[in-house]
Write a protein that binds this DNA or RNA. Sequence first.
DNA 1: GCATAATAGTTGATACATCAACTATCGTCA
DNA 2: TGACGATAGTTGATGTATCAACTATTATGC
Lengths: 151, 151
Amino acid sequence: METTELKIEDLSIIANGYVSSLINKLLNRAFKKHNLNITTEQWTVLTSLNNNDFQTQQGLSEDTFKQKGSITRLIDTLVKNQLVERTSSPNDRRSNLIHITDLGKKIDNKAKEVVTDIYNKSIKGVTYTEILKVKSIMTIIINNLINEDNL
Amino acid sequence: METTELKIEDLSIIANGYVSSLINKLLNRAFKKHNLNITTEQWTVLTSLNNNDFQTQQGLSEDTFKQKGSITRLIDTLVKNQLVERTSSPNDRRSNLIHITDLGKKIDNKAKEVVTDIYNKSIKGVTYTEILKVKSIMTIIINNLINEDNL
DNA sequence: GCATAATAGTTGATACATCAACTATCGTCA
DNA sequence: TGACGATAGTTGATGTATCAACTATTATGC
């Protein structure tokens, strides 16, 4: 394997999160414009629950790649806005079970349309094959970083 | 051009910023470990100045893709830690000129080593050609989003 | 059965982001 | 030259992330 002569600039467009922060900004504006009253972070949690209801906060933490402290606060907000309900697990009193409400589902479905719209606009001129290629490379990078994470 | 049948999951690994936030987390830990006493965001500004000294905050804002409010506060911190100096521009009293100090350069150069190391570890198993491919696709996406941004 | 370790969740401190409103200065042009 | 719009920077409110310390509960192993 040749030594790759990587320059910082080559990876920085991936590493600096400019794409994701740009998407995040646009999505938050679009959510506001459509009166959805959620943030993209809240939407990430909501959509995880809409796919798989009654998860623990720990489960949500793993599924959304967010730390459990962040999940606690996001759930606080979602509960306050009646998009989810938090109940203590009967099996394990350390755990909470989070349940998405009907309102939560409704908001999530509307948000999905907004997200799909912006995602589609973002990939104009990029083929589906290319997207999948990027996805697979990102996955490799993520795994490398996760290994690095366990020092 | 065929209609791409994009699923949200296909783009979410790019859009949700997991890669960048993971890199960010690892870099911040590594900076702390090496007693550099900066964050990745501060480093972004510092390295921009090390490449091109005496920029205005507006210039830094454009070069680093950060909003000017964020730049104000980052510069505040960098000034406090004596990594940069902020002086009012003699030509245009609205503008500030930001100058990286010797200490700032020293820290930036050390940080560059830490960043390069983590970047290299992150791309194990990925070819340089693939990196460039990802980079070019990201650039397309960014441009699409920027156009979308000017509503 | 009890001490100890592991796990789930909360919380305080700190850093950064966005948005939007604000001040100060400069440029333009009738 | 004087009004008005554009530009540079600051700031307050709000949302989220990290880290680390903390409580409460459950699982493990001698």
